[in-house]
Design a protein around this nucleic acid. Sequence first.
DNA 1: GGAATGAAGGAAAGCGGTTTCCGTCGACTG
DNA 2: CAGTCGACGGAAACCGCTTTCCTTCATTCC
Lengths: 336, 336
Amino acid sequence: MRSETRPVRISDVAIRAGVSPGTASKALNGTGQLRAETRDRVHRAAAELGFRPHGLARALSLGRSFTVGLLTTDSFGRFSLPVMLGVEDAMGAGEMAVLLCDTRDDPLRERHYLRTLVARQVDGLILTGRRTEPRVPVEVPNSLPVVYVFRPCADPAATSIVVDDAGGARLAAEHVLGLGRRRVAVITGPPSHLAARTRADAVVATLSGQGLAPAGPVQFGEWSERWGRLAATSLIRRGEEVDAILCGSDQIARGACDGLREADLRVPDDVAVVGFDNWDVMALACRPPLTTVDLELQQLGRQAAALLLDAIAGEVRPGRHQIAPRLVIRESSVGA
Amino acid sequence: MRSETRPVRISDVAIRAGVSPGTASKALNGTGQLRAETRDRVHRAAAELGFRPHGLARALSLGRSFTVGLLTTDSFGRFSLPVMLGVEDAMGAGEMAVLLCDTRDDPLRERHYLRTLVARQVDGLILTGRRTEPRVPVEVPNSLPVVYVFRPCADPAATSIVVDDAGGARLAAEHVLGLGRRRVAVITGPPSHLAARTRADAVVATLSGQGLAPAGPVQFGEWSERWGRLAATSLIRRGEEVDAILCGSDQIARGACDGLREADLRVPDDVAVVGFDNWDVMALACRPPLTTVDLELQQLGRQAAALLLDAIAGEVRPGRHQIAPRLVIRESSVGA
DNA sequence: GGAATGAAGGAAAGCGGTTTCCGTCGACTG
DNA sequence: CAGTCGACGGAAACCGCTTTCCTTCATTCC
C-alpha cells in the first residue's frame, strides 16, 4: 500500500524499454512505423510499471479534452435525470467523461458555465431542460458541437433530439379507442406548457380522426395529483359520461384514479385511465397500476450522446430528431 | 457572429500589452512583482482581446485539474441526486468542475472509472451511494483526497459524512411523544437495510427512555406504499391500540395514511403518522401532507464538497461526520 | 556496384500556460 | 560617489505527451 511513489511517465517506460519517449508514445498509441517486437517491448514495460498516461498532458497536446459538458437549465429532476444517465452511459463507455453543470434556470449561471466549459476545452456540449419549449441557442464558438436534448433549440439548423410528445399521446388515444372506449376525457397540466398543449392536441386530433369529440373540454390545470383528483371528481359530479381519461402526466392520472375510486367508479371497468411519463413511483404505486406512455428518456440520452460523438467526429446531423415513446400497458386500462 | 478566429493566447495578450508572456501571466494571476500600471495594461489587453486562459494548459503546468470526480455506486436516484446537486452547487461556485460517474453497483465499472479519473488528474473524489452500509475504501493513490458521502467508508480514518439517521428518528419519536401519543407503532423497510434498523432502534430507544414500549413489534417490510398500507391495515385489524405510527420512509407513511383512511381512522386525530426523507412527491401528495424527517441531502452534498475542498487545500478532516436532519411538521401529526 | 526506396526509431519542437532565476535600473546609504 | 538593495520585468525551463521531421541502415533495383 506504500503509494507515494512518483507517478510513472512515458519517459520511464521509454527508458525501461530502451527506446525514446517518442517511440514509446507511438508504440502505445499504435501510430508510426515500429517493429512488432519493439511495440511489444514498450507495452510490456508500460504494463510492468503500471503506466497511465497523464490525461491533461495528452489532452493538451492532442487539442482535445475527451470531455463533454452536460448543462441542464433546471436542476436535474425527473426528466433531466434519466437523460443524464443515458448520456453518461453512452459517454462513459468510451473514454469520454461528462462534466456536470446545473444552471438552475439562471441565465447568468448559464453564461458562467458556458465560459468555463469552453475554457476547459470541452469537445462538445449537451443541453437539456425540463420544459419542452424551444430555447435560444447558446453562444459558443460555432466550431464546438452542441446537441439539445428534450428541450430543442429554436434554431432548426442546430442539432436537437426530443421526445415525440404528439406521437405518445396518439398512442394513448389509439389504445383506449382500441379498447372500445368512446367517451374520452382529457386532463392535463398548465396550458402555458407546450407539452400539455401538444399532448392534448394530439389526443383531440386522434379522436376526431375517428369522428369523435372529447368528453367535455380538455381540462388544463397543474401537474399534480391533487389536480387530477379534482378534475376527475368534478367530471363525474358534472354527470359527464366518460369511459376513459387520458392524463397529461402520471401524477394527474394517479390523482384521477383516486378521485374515481372515491366516487365509487371502478378503474378500468367503468373508466380506463392512461397516464404519461411512466414515472415508476407514480405509475406503479397507483391503484391500479397505470397504463402510461414511457418517454424512453434514457434512450434519448444515449442517442443524444451518440449524436454528439458523431458531431465531434465530424459527422454533424443537424435538425430536430425525435424518438418514439412507448405505451406501457398496465391494469388501469385493461383488467388484470 | 464570425467566430472562426483563432483563440487568443496569453502571448497575444502579452504582445498587445507590450510585455513578455511570463509577465502577462503574473499580471493576470496577481503574482510576481509588477507595477500597478503594468498590471492594468495587461488586464486591459486581456479584456480587449477577450482572453480566456486555456484550462488544460493551465492545469498541466499547475499540476491541478480543478476537477473532482463524483462517483455514485448506484444510479443517481432520490438520494444521490440532491447530494449531487449540493456538491455541484458548492463546487461550481468556485472554479471547480464535477465529473460525473455512475458505476451502477458494478465493481468493474467502479475500477474503470477510478482509473480514468485518476488518469485525468482529478483533484479529489466524492463517493456516494444509496445504501447507508459502510463500504470498502476505494483504491487510489493515497495522496488523492476522497470524501465518502451518505454511505460512509468502513475505514474510520477516511473522511465520511453521513446523515444522522438515529437522530432523525429520535426527532420523530420525540415529536409524537410531545403530542401526548403513547401507543407508538413502527413500520419500516427491509431488516437487511441498515437505515431501517438504525431508525427503528432509535425510536425504540427513545420510547423506552420514557418507560414506553412500541405498540406491537417493529414491522419490517419493504420501502413501498403498498407495504405501508398493508402493515397499517393489519395493525388496525389486529386490534392494536395505536395513536401514532412512525414510518421508515415517506412512501411507507403515505401507504399507512391510505390504509388508515380506508379503515375509517382519521389522521392525525386518531393516529398521527410521521414519515422519513421528506420526499416532496410523497410527503406533499399524501393525504394529509406528511410530517416527516428531512435528510438535508443538499446540505450534505454542500458540506461534502466543502470537506473535499479543504482536503485539497491540505486541511484533511478525517472521521465520520454527521449532519443533523430536521423535522418538518405538517398535517399528518398535528391537525390543520 | 551505386542509387533509390522504405522501414525503424531518435531528436526536438510544439501544446499554452506558469515559475524560477537572473539582469537591469533607480534609489538609498555611508 | 561607490556600493547595496529592492522593485520590475524578461528569458527560458518546465508540466507530460504527441508528432513532425530527419537520420540511419538494410534492401531492392537497374
